[in-house]
Design a protein around this nucleic acid. Structure first.
Length: 486
RNA sequence: GCCCCCAUCGUCUAGUGGCCUAGGACACCACCCUUUCAAGGUGGCGACGCGGAUUCGAACUCCGCUGGGGGCACCA
C-alpha cells in the first residue's frame, strides 16, 4: 500500500505521558504497529505531552517500556530516534510557533483574547439558550482599537484556527467509510495557548505532516475531531490528507468506558499478575478484529502477516478478563519447559522463595504449566517443592485422615522406604498395589498421601511430585503427617 | 440541546440476498478420561433489538423507531 504521494506506509502511535499504558491505548498501538508491519511500513512513536498539567514523571519511559514488553518496537521516534525528531511535542515548540505565525499571516488563524472565564460563561449561556456550546467567533475580525484595548489590559491571546461556516467536510475512514460533516457544526478551535504550547488538535496534525505519517490509526473518540483536522492538513499544505482508521472503543464489563474500578486496566498490571505479552497481544488483536470464523490463536509474527484494518469491526468491544485468562493459559501451555521456568522465576522469587532451585522448577514445569492460567499462580503450585515447612490444611486433614486414611498412610510409609530407584513409576506401582490390596478407591487411598506431601488436596500429579521431591524429603513428610496430622 | 458512530448467543466475533434448521471462541452445564486439580475429548444451553419497505427470497439492501456509545474544552 502506498499513500497519495507514492510513499510507503508510515503509522504512528502518539500517547500522552499521563500515566500507565492503558489496555485500550495498547490496542490502538498494536493495530497501528500491525498495519505498518503488514505493509512493510514504518511505525513511529511520538509523545504528545502538550497537557503539561497532566504529564507524569517518567510517563513516556513507562509507556515505552510497556510497548517494548508487548513486542511493539518502534522503528522511529521516542527512545529510538530518526530523521523527523524531536519526537516529543514540548521539544518542538519553535516549529509550532513558526507554523502558527504563518497561518495568522495567511488569515487562516487569528488571535483570540477571550479569557477562559468569559468563554465558560458564554458557553453556559449558549447551552441554556439551546445553542451549540462551541466558540462563537467573537475575536475573528476585531477592530484594531479593541485589540489595543485588550493589550492594554494585559491580556495574552490564544490563537484560534479558522474553520468554514458553510459547506461540508467529507471524512473518509478505512473502517467507517465516508461520513459527511456539516461545517456549520465546526467551531474555531484553539491551536496555540497563551502559554505558547499548542493543543492536540493542531500539534498532532502538524507533526503528522512533518513526520510524513500516511495512516492515522486512533480511537473512535477522535472521530469527531477529524473534520476540523482535515482543514488543518489542507492549511499546512499537505496535498493529500493521510488515510484515517478510527478503531472502536473498548468498554468495561458494565458497557461503559473501561475504568480502573472494575479491575486491571494498565498493561503493567497485567504483567505483574503473570499474563504473558503473547496472550495480551493475542487477546487485544481479537477485540474488534477477526481473521475468519475460527482462528483464535495468533502470535505477533502471524498477526504481522495477516492483519487487515478493513476487517476491524465498527462496534465497541467489551473487555472480558475471563477470555484473556483462558488465552493466557493456552499461551502458557505453548511455552517450552525452559521458557516457562525462566518466566516463572521472578514470580516464584517474589513470592518468598528467593533461592528457588531452578533445576527443580524446570523439572516441575511440565506438571505445573497446564494447571495455571497466570504466572502468579505458579508459586502456590510449586511451594511444596521449595519449602519443607508445609502446613497440612486442617480442614483437609479432618476430611481425609480418618481411620482408613491413616492406616493407608502408615502402610504406605513403610512400603515406600524400600522403593528404589525413587521414580514416579516405582512409587505408583507400590502405592497402587497397596491400594488394591486394601480394596480402597484410588482417591480414598491417595488423598492422604497427597496431603502429607503437599499440604493440600489439590496439587500436581502425586507420583511425579514425590519423585521431584526426592525420597528423603518425601518420607520425612509422610512420617511427619503420621505423627502430627494437622 | 446539537453532531457523529454502532446494533448477531451473557461476552468477543464469522456472516456482504438463497450455501443459515446462523458457524467458532470464552463463560456456564453434563458426560468421558482420571490419584486431586487441571489439560484434553464429546454433547448441551444460548443471538440476528422492533416496525415497515424492496425482492420469488433478507442477519445481510433502504426508511423509521428503540437502545447503546462517542463528541461538542486554552484534555487528548
Amino acid at each position: 500500500m502506498s499513500d497519495a504521494n507514492g510513499g510507503t506506509v508510515r503509522t504512528r502511535f502518539a500517547p500522552s505521558p499521563t500515566g500507565w499504558l492503558h489496555v485500550g491505548t495498547a490496542r490502538t498501538a498494536l493495530f497501528s504497529y500491525l498495519h505498518a508491519r503488514r505493509h512493510g511500513g514504518t511505525f513511529v512513536l511520538r509523545i504528545e505531552d502538550t497537557d503539561v498539567e497532566r504529564n507524569v514523571e517518567r510517563g513516556a519511559e513507562g509507556i515505552a517500556d510497556a510497548l517494548g514488553w508487548l513486542g511493539l518496537r518502534a522503528d522511529e521516534g521516542y527512545g529510538v530516534g530518526g530523521p523527523h525528531g524531536p519526537y516529543v511535542q514540548t521539544e518542538r515548540l519553535d516549529r509550532y510557533h513558526t507554523s502558527v505565525a504563518s497561518l495568522i499571516e495567511r488569515g487562516l488563524a487569528y488571535r483570540c483574547w477571550c479569557t477562559p472565564e468569559e468563554l465558560a460563561e458564554r458557553r453556559k449561556a449558549a447551552q441554556a439558550a439551546g445553542r451549540p456550546p462551541g466558540y462563537d467567533g467573537r475575536c475573528r475580525d476585531l477592530p484594531d482599537a479593541q485589540i489595543r484595548a485588550y493589550q492594554a489590559e494585559g491580556r495574552v491571546p490564544a490563537v484560534r484556527f479558522r474553520l468554514p461556516d458553510e459547506g461540508e467536510t467529507v471524512v473518509t475512514d478505512l473502517i467507517r467509510g465516508t461520513v459527511r460533516f456539516d461545517n456549520a457544526t465546526l467551531t474555531d478551535f484553539v491551536a496555540l495557548r497563551p502559554n505558547g504550547i499548542p493543543t492536540y488538535l493542531f500539534a498532532a496534525v502538524f507533526d503528522d505532516v512533518d513526520m510524513g505519517i500516511t495512516d492515522v490509526i486512533r480511537g473512535e473518540d477522535l472521530f469527531p475531531a477529524t473534520p476540523s483536522q482535515l482543514h488543518v492538513f489542507r492549511a499546512l499544505g499537505r496535498e493529500a490528507p493521510p488515510r484515517f482508521a478510527h478503531l472502536p472503543l473498548l468498554v468495561g464489563p458494565d458497557g461503559r468506558k473501561l475504568s480502573k474500578r472494575l479491575g486491571a486496566v494498565a498493561v503493567e498490571e497485567f504483567r505483574a499478575q503473570g499474563y504473558l505479552p503473547e496472550a495480551l497481544v493475542n487477546y487485544l488483536a481479537l477485540l474488534g478484529w477477526a481473521l475468519d470464523d475460527h482462528t483464535e490463536h495468533f502470535t505477533l509474527a502471524e498477526l504481522e502477516r495477516v492483519f487487515e484494518l478493513e476487517r476491524v469491526s465498527r462496534n465497541p468491544a467489551q473487555f472480558d478478563p475471563r477470555k484473556l485468562e483462558a488465552l493466557n493459559g493456552w499461551h502458557l501451555r505453548e511455552l517450552s519447559a525452559d521458557d516457562f521456568t525462566a518466566r516463572s522465576l521472578e514470580f516464584v522469587r517474589r513470592a518468598g522463595y528467593p533461592d528457588a532451585d531452578q533445576d527443580l522448577l524446570r523439572r516441575a514445569a511440565p506438571l505445573v504449566s497446564e494447571r495455571v492460567t497466570r504466572l502468579d499462580q505458579v508459586p502456590g503450585m510449586v511451594g511444596f517443592l521449595l519449602d519443607d515447612e508445609v502446613e497440612l490444611d486442617p480442614d483437609a486433614a479432618a476430611k481425609v485422615l480418618d481411620a482408613e486414611g491413616r492406616a493407608f498412610l502408615d502402610a504406605a510409609t513403610k512400603l515406600l522406604q524400600a522403593v528404589e530407584p525413587w521414580t514416579a513409576e516405582a512409587i505408583e506401582t507400590t502405592l497402587r498395589a497397596l491400594q488394591a490390596e486394601r480394596g480402597l478407591k484410588p482417591k480414598k487411598a491417595f488423598q492422604p498421601i497427597r496431603l502429607a506431601i503437599t499440604g493440600t488436596l489439590v496439587s500436581p500429579p502425586l507420583f511425579e511430585s514425590m519423585e521431584l521431591l526426592g525420597k528423603p524429603r518425601s518420607l520425612a513428610r509422610l512420617e511427619r503427617a503420621r505423627v502430627h496430622p494437622g
